[in-house]
Structure formats: structure tokens, C-alpha cells
């Protein structure tokens, strides 16, 4: 019983790393910028598709591919914000929500056309041989996912806490007018935040291709899960989003393991309902946020 429980825990942490990366990106776009981004799952899949183009088709080294994907998707995110989100800044939630719905419909179907409708794996340099620690099984790819997740999360933390851009971001999202007064280019901060969020989702997409397979149909569930995790984490709370992602991964895994796999996806949504009713500022905030 115990060894099975430990295996469930490890399984949950792997899934949780994906959730955390997705949610970290969405916490910036949805939590900070207040854009209900329905294309987040598509950004995620796009990361995998772009990686496939470089890694499998052009034969670029896997690790170099990750760097290229991050750079390209960062630029794509910035362009998306500039062209689609900026003109609608300050308008009703519905306007930006719909533009991202349009974007998601466009992206998903265009990817089906160009990438093809068949699922594909990424040529990642990991052995599929399981690593067995006691009774627990894990693979190189899965370990790598956890490591990349951790690195991305620490890097984000440093970026936000220690860099000039991070300070500008914090100032902008705390008090926009004041930030503008002290010379912060608010529009630029918005665009960079959106780009960062997009790149974060794309990293998760590369990992998806390395550990599982890339297929456009995964986008919708990924978007929904990311929203759930952002709420668990407390909306604007970036470390909270990470903790929320890991927590959801583990809880789902334990629930699936000991109760019912059919109802596994219900957990997240049920948690959202309870949290919003009793702790609307997330699980990890000591006091109401912004």
C-alpha cells in the first residue's frame, strides 16, 4: 500500500510540474494582466510543434531547440500582445476573452493543417529505461521535466524579485498610474509580461513532446487545468501558482489511485468551487491580495 502511495506521489509531482509551468505563465497573463486567455493551451502545444520542427525535421540539438523555442515563442507572445491585446486594453473582459478564443481556434486548426493530424514524439536524448528507486519507478524524461520545471520557476522568481524588469512589473501591477508617473513604460511591461507567460507555456509544450507526445487535441484540457491552478494559487501569486500546480498533480494522482480515475478531472474544478467560496484569495495567501 505504502509503495503504491509513494508511486502515486511521484506520478503526481511529474504531472504537477507541467501544471506549475502552465499556471505560472497563465498567472502572469490572467492573474496580473487580467486577460482571460483561452489560447494558453494552444501556446503550450505550439511550443511542442515548433520544437518538433527544429528538433525532428531540421535535426537541431534538443537542448538548443529549447532555447530556440523559448526565444521564438517569447517573440510570438510579444507580437500577440501588441496586435491583439493592446488595442483592447481597458475594455470588458469579454473582448479580450473573445480575441483569445479567436486566436485559439485559428492556432489549433492551423497547427492541425501544418503539423498534421497524427500525434508525434520528440527526438529527445533520454533513455526510456526506467530508473527504479526502491519500489518507485521514474524515467529520465520525467526527471528532466521536474528539473526544467524547477529551473524555470526559480528563474522567474529571480527575474521578478531581482531585475529591473521585475521591479517595473511589480510596480505596474500594483499601481499602474504611479508606475507610469515614475517613468515605467507601462505598455512595454504589459507586452513583456504577456511574452514571458507565452514562453513559459511553450517550455511545458517542449517537455510534453519529450516525455509524452505532441498532439493539438491536448490544448483544451491544458487550458482548463491551467485556469484551475491559477485559482488554487491565488490568481496573482506566482509562487502560489507553482505550489497549486504541484498540489493539484498530487491530489489528482491520489484520487485517481485510491478512488476513481473516471472522476479524476472533477477534483480540480470541485476544488475551485470550494476555494472561491471559502478562501477566494487562494490557498497560499496569508491575507487578501491586491
Amino acid at each position: 500500500m505504502l509503495d503504491v502511495a509513494l508511486q502515486f506521489l511521484v506520478n503526481g509531482l511529474v504531472t504537477g510540474s507541467f501544471y506549475a509551468l502552465m499556471a505560472l505563465g497563465l498567472a502572469m497573463i490572467f492573474g496580473l494582466m487580467e486577460v482571460v486567455n483561452f489560447a494558453h493551451g494552444e501556446f503550450f502545444v505550439m511550443g511542442g510543434v515548433v520544437a518538433y520542427a527544429f528538433c525532428n525535421v531540421l535535426g537541431v540539438d534538443f537542448y538548443l531547440t529549447i532555447v530556440i523555442v523559448v526565444a521564438l515563442m517569447f517573440a510570438f507572445g510579444a507580437a500577440t500582445d501588441y496586435l491583439l491585446i493592446r488595442p483592447l486594453r481597458g475594455q470588458h473582459l469579454l473582448s479580450t476573452a473573445l480575441v483569445t478564443i479567436g486566436l485559439s481556434i485559428f492556432l489549433i486548426n492551423t497547427m492541425l493543417l501544418t503539423f498534421g493530424t497524427s500525434p508525434q514524439g520528440l527526438d529527445a536524448p533520454f533513455s526510456r529505461k526506467p530508473i527504479i528507486i526502491g519500489e518507485i519507478v521514474i524515467t529520465e524524461g520525467r526527471l528532466f521535466a521536474i528539473v526544467v520545471g524547477a529551473v524555470a520557476i526559480v528563474a522567474t522568481h529571480i527575474l521578478i524579485q531581482k531585475t529591473r524588469l521585475g521591479r517595473a512589473m511589480r510596480a505596474t501591477f500594483q499601481q499602474k498610474e504611479a508606475a507610469a508617473l515614475v517613468g515605467v513604460n507601462v505598455e512595454r511591461v504589459y507586452t513583456l509580461t504577456f511574452a514571458l507567460g507565452t514562453a513559459m507555456a511553450a517550455i511545458a509544450g517542449v517537455l510534453l513532446g519529450a516525455v509524452f507526445v505532441i498532439h493539438p487535441s491536448t490544448a483544451e484540457l491544458a487550458t482548463l487545468k491551467a485556469f484551475v491552478v491559477v485559482i488554487l494559487g491565488g490568481m496573482t501569486n506566482l509562487p502560489g501558482a507553482v505550489a497549486g500546480g504541484l498540489l493539484l498533480g498530487v491530489v489528482e494522482s491520489l484520487w485517481g489511485g485510491f478512488v476513481s480515475t473516471g472522476y479524476m478531472d472533477v477534483i480540480g474544478f470541485a476544488l475551485v468551487i470550494f476555494i472561491l467560496l471559502f478562501r477566494p484569495y487562494g490557498l497560499f495567501a496569508p491575507r487578501p491580495g491586491r
Partner: peptide, 14 residues
Amino acid sequence: VDRTANDFYTPLTK
């Protein structure tokens, strides 16, 4: 399991 899911370690562990 969900048709679009990626990770089946949990049911497979069971």
C-alpha cells in the same frame, strides 16, 4: 481515462 490525457502512470500503477 480522458481521451486527450498524456500521463497514465496513475491507472497503470493501480
